[in-house]
């Protein structure tokens, strides 16, 4: 998995590419720390170019949501498609994290 962050005023847009699995734990920790440190109140994860996510990836997204909510920051998942959308649905992540088309 790779990511790029684009910050505009109150919004940080993070574009994820590739596959998000447990093997990305070090990168995910770095990403969460960046999202905690930047000034934007809304942290949006753009999943349009994410090809695959596993249960560990879902767990790491929940950790991001929890850590961001501790700092009163909003966490939003956007544009999931294909396998990623299906896994988010099966894991019922919409009950815990805001998911936008």
């Amino acid at each position: 998995m790779d990511y790029a962050i684009d910050i505009k005023e109150q919004e940080a847009l993070v574009r994820l590419t590739g596959r998000l699995t447990f093997n990305d734990h070090a990168k995910l920790r770095a990403l969460i720390k960046e999202m905690l440190q930047n000034a934007a109140k809304r942290q949006i994860l753009d999943l349009a170019n994410l090809e695959f996510v596993d249960s560990a990836g879902i767990g790491m997204l929940l950790i991001a949501r929890e850590e961001l909510s501790n700092l009163d920051k909003q966490f939003i998942l956007r544009k999931a498609g294909g396998q990623v959308k299906r896994v988010l649905t099966v894991a019922q992540l919409g009950k815990l994290i805001t998911i936008e088309e």
């Binding site: 879902i58 950790i63 099966v90």
Partner: peptide, 14 residues
């Protein structure tokens, strides 16, 4: 309650 792990078998079963 929601935890970071434990969804693997949910994904396998579907």
């Amino acid at each position: 309650e929601p935890q970071a792990s434990g969804r693997g078998f949910d994904l396998i079963s579907v």
